[in-house]
């Protein structure tokens, strides 16, 4: 028996070693695929034969002609097309059109739902015969090879994007659909709107905290998150200063960070805040004491993540805090 034990021991070690080696070997050989992700270049050209070249999150995309049958796999991509007056033939909307902001929905008149944003229905996508699919770098990486067999892809990093990244993505989309000039113009309009909103705010020297609240918890959106980064852009201060995008806070932690303004995005009617309101600690928060707790639509503030969504956020903020 002991000799067999020894053999068994070395066998176990061998398995572990093998796993390690295969894991290392794989990382080495495929590194170059990852590097262009950081590159969100802006160079594009529209050549004489009408083809379009654009840099996306993974490299250069060349389209032989201006795409006409486009499928969007995220809300912000549909938002971008809506501002450019382009109709997608298909959109991932989690099979619930109500998740689009009213303004976006009114502009998307006739699209086919391709289902979930996480697991979009590839059969439906293929049957729509698109000539461009706008996908997310993270969410859709498992199926990019399959989707490439259907149509050229425009890969953008929306999942991890902050506000600045969204603006870059917007221009990439505008160029890809052959509407660079319109996009530029709309972007300037957007910047004017945001600057106008900023001027309507008396002071931005405030600690403002946006947070998603559900029955189970309070999830702050720090300035690493999209909503938080937008508030930081307006000049507000992020009171949580967390390296995570969506740190969960207890009531005690919330009292300690003590925001002066709270924007709550409830997922349903009854949330944890209803319980907290009965707690005397809740009233110690500056935002609560000064009646600066506002409820806003999670759909507009957290899901939309586009120009229209950000403008809605800005106007909500002006309505709440402006003169």
């Amino acid at each position: 028996m002991p000799r067999f034990m020894k053999r068994l021991n070395s066998f176990t070690a061998l398995i572990l070693l093998l796993l390690l080696v295969t894991a290392c070997g794989q990382t080495g050989s495929n590194n170059q695929a990852e590097t262009p992700a950081a590159n969100t270049g802006t160079e594009t050209s529209k050549s004489a034969d009408g083809s379009i070249t654009v840099e996306d999150a993974t490299g250069t995309v060349t389209l032989t002609k201006r795409p006409e049958r486009i499928i969007t796999m995220e809300f912000s991509f549909a938002d971008a097309l809506a501002t450019l007056g382009v109709q997608p033939v298909g959109a991932a909307d989690d099979d619930d059109p109500a998740l689009f902001m009213d303004e976006v929905k009114s502009k998307l008149t006739n699209y086919t739902s391709v289902g979930s944003r996480y697991e979009p229905n590839i059969e439906v996508i293929s049957s729509l015969q698109p000539d461009l699919i706008i996908v997310d770098l993270v969410k859709h990486k498992e199926v990019m090879e399959q989707l490439k067999g259907i149509a050229p892809l425009l890969v953008l990093d929306d999942y991890q994007a902050d506000y600045e990244q969204m603006l870059k993505n917007y221009m990439i989309i505008a160029k890809a659909v052959g509407k660079k000039a319109e996009g530029q113009k709309r972007l300037e309009e957007h910047e004017a709107k945001i600057a106008d909103a900023k001027s309507k705010l008396q002071s931005t020297d405030l600690k403002v905290l946006p947070a998603v609240v559900n029955p189970k918890g309070f999830f702050a959106h720090s300035d690493h998150a999209y909503t938080g980064s937008f508030l930081a852009k307006l000049g507000f201060t992020d009171p949580v200063k967390d390296e995570n995008s969506y740190p969960q806070l207890t009531l005690e932690q919330l009292v300690e960070t003590n925001p002066q303004v709270l924007f709550l995005m409830p997922t349903e009617k009854e949330t944890i805040v209803n319980q907290w309101e009965a707690n005397s600690l809740w009233n110690k928060i500056d935002a609560v004491a000064n009646k600066k707790v506002f409820t806003v639509e999670r759909r507009d503030w957290s899901l939309a993540r586009g120009l229209i969504g950000s403008e809605k956020m800005a106007s909500d903020i002006v309505n709440s805090l402006g003169k």
Partner: peptide
Amino acid sequence: PASPSYWLPLAALAGAFLAF
């Protein structure tokens, strides 16, 4: 989250053998 897509099955396989 930004890792290449083949990491996931490799990690899962490694996890199965790690449990073993």
